[in-house]
Design a binder for these strands. Structure first.
Lengths: 201, 201
DNA sequence: GAGTTCTTTGAGTTGAGATTCAAACAATGG
DNA sequence: CCATTGTTTGAATCTCAACTCAAAGAACTC
């Protein structure tokens, strides 16, 4: 063998490029040449690394789920106290606005879930891990005496929190003028306040 | 003029056919011939009535929003008492399962909102009217003494209810095994119980 | 630097689907 | 039953993007 295979790096670049292409053109408008242009290579090169386009899209989805979760965790971990950690979690789950690239990407990819088991699994995994994050925050907060949970198990409350995030996220991305990030965050926080009995949130 | 124009009826049939096609192939996989096949006509006929396919899709969206809302209202109106009406509202906002045609259709169409102002408007209108429905139910229930609202304005509670519906709806359609209709309804109802202070829900 | 293998490209091919269109067809008025 | 006009169709055409492929290029080994 001669020329070094840095296929990993190449594939990584293509995954990023495809992510950008999907976020701004949508799955329906995704074209190989757009991915190629975004990556600064020819269409042939995209096919060279991903003869099956579906594999690339799946890689994008995996990557998006992992980095989104890592990013949220990072935000939460910047805080120490249970209340502040919960606030950070709430703030990190909503799109910054209609053009939030990560959320646009995730919603586009989610639309594949009903016809692809692999995508459905990724979406379910994202949901489960977000629920786990909130569950932990709620339980730790309750143990520390900061929260008085409105219901048990905490997982039920956590699922509702994630559902609200997803619901508002959908509307923010869809440019619903009645749902901007600030209102959504206020309503989400109000809900969290209710179920934790914690007025400081 | 000779031959009677029953274009209205023809267009109506095409709207239905397109709705079915979108619900089961998705916007990304929508083909004129599928709409035509669904309507039992040739592809040419579809173009004859809708030279611009976007107009047909927009008509489908309008129609879906109206009939979905009408259907929900009908469900709610089958009950008399505030509590029963609220239960009916809660039960009518979630997909029956991953194959619920109306919800599949609505979610597909919603994905157009971020790139089309017309679709965004329809989606926003649907949201606003669902919020209005819940607002009314909450206020009437409170006035009747059945509910003790956890917050004012009632519209805030209503928006959270709709957001939860949308969030769980998304996951049910996406075949998330952790979110089936029954669990989602139970969690949604639990939330409603909390914010209304009404144990009978 | 010659040989080898990996990589990239662009031109050409293929195929699917949208669109056009002329001809056939149907219903009604006269 | 003929003329008129609306409707429908299928075949022909157009368009665009996926895919193929042979040739050129690049990095490494020996």
């Amino acid at each position: 063998m001669a020329r070094p295979k840095n296929q990993e790096a190449r594939r990584g670049a293509l995954i990023d490029a495809a992510g950008r292409a999907i976020a701004d053109r949508g799955m329906a408008g995704l074209r190989i040449k757009d991915i190629a242009a975004e990556a600064g290579v020819s269409a042939g090169s995209v096919l060279y690394y991903y003869p099956e386009l579906d594999d690339l899209v799946l890689a994008v989805h995996q990557d998006a789920v992992e980095s989104y979760l890592a990013e949220r965790q990072r935000h939460v971990d910047e805080a120490e106290e249970p209340v502040a950690r919960m606030s950070a979690a709430l703030a990190s789950g909503l799109p910054s606005g209609p053009d939030d690239a990560m959320h646009r990407l995730l919603f586009e990819l989610h639309s594949l879930a009903d016809r692809s088991a692999a995508h459905a699994t990724l979406m379910a995994s994202l949901f489960a891990r977000e629920v786990a994050l909130y569950s932990t925050l709620l339980q730790v907060g309750a143990a520390a005496g900061a929260f008085t949970l409105a219901a048990v198990p905490a997982g039920d409350l956590a699922r509702n929190l994630v559902a609200i995030e997803d619901g508002y996220g959908l509307h923010i991305i869809a440019r619903n003028p009645a749902v901007d990030r600030d209102t959504a965050l206020a309503l989400l926080t109000a809900h969290a306040r209710t179920v934790t009995g914690c007025p400081e949130l």
